[in-house]
Design a protein around this nucleic acid. Structure first.
Lengths: 137, 137
DNA sequence: AAATATCCTACTAAATTAGTAGGAATTAAT
DNA sequence: ATTAATTCCTACTAATTTAGTAGGATATTT
């Protein structure tokens, strides 16, 4: 399951995707409209900025905007930034790989199955973008 | 990510799958061979028994056995029993559905994407079985 | 200089996960 | 019948992660 934080991130990003190409949107505005705790949202947007999903502007008239087109930001990327691995076990993860203790990876059936499952999930999450999130609603 | 508990469950079930059709296997034996804390493993196997994956026998010569063939126990079923939902958000779950607060499901793009992702994952996890877990290793 | 906004560090509270303890119930062998 | 072996049950504790808060520093515009 995705954390609430990740679900907040999707809501905030969908909001920003709708406003893509327009004026920056203030955190406080997103917080109210999307019902996300203000200070928590600050952290989320800041993390997304550090990973080059968002741009920000301080001072009056400031706020956040998407750095690139909603069509170019896929859901897997967002999940990895805010939530962590897509794979169901660490030893099957591409971006957060960790070696298992007590298991030989070359011959581990569980790992093989989890890699197949991960690839199926990824195929969807890497294809779908913020644009899909807003056009489908 | 799957909890450690779920990963222990897979290890224990793989062990029992290898011994399918033979004598019952004691918890203590699985605990040692698979390096799973004994009392924790007790809980896990008991839960699997309650969900009709396993059968048990008490007293001398007792232990656990798979109730049905390893080929008929798919990975999605095990995950749902020990870990919970397969879907990434509650409103996209088949077996653990929960309505979102603050979102209209009919028009929610996120939900639609998460249902597509869930189906892709499920297609793998419902097809792969304990038998695949042990023949692949 | 004042007002407005993001940025940063650190803390607290709540929830979940992981694991333990101790004995009750059942079965098999003697 | 008694003992030994095993699962079963209830409840507790510890560790980790998630969720959210506090307060001020920094940058920008007017």
């Amino acid at each position: 399951m995705l954390s609430k934080k990740t679900q907040y991130a999707f809501r905030a990003l969908a909001h920003l995707a709708v406003n893509y190409g327009k004026e920056p949107v203030k955190i406080s505005h997103i917080s109210i409209k999307e019902k996300i705790p203000l200070k928590f949202l600050e952290n989320i947007l800041n993390e997304l900025k550090k990973e080059d999903i968002l741009e920000s502007k301080k001072g009056k008239g400031g706020g956040y905007i998407l750095k690139i087109s909603p069509k170019k930001i896929n859901l897997a990327k967002v999940i990895r930034i805010i939530n962590g691995p897509i794979a169901l076990v660490p030893c099957a993860s591409l971006n957060f790989y960790e070696k298992c203790t007590d298991c030989d990876e070359e011959t581990c059936g569980t790992r093989k199955m989890m890699i197949i499952a991960r690839d199926a999930t990824l195929k969807v999450l890497e294809k779908k973008t913020l644009h899909d999130l807003i056009t489908e609603r």
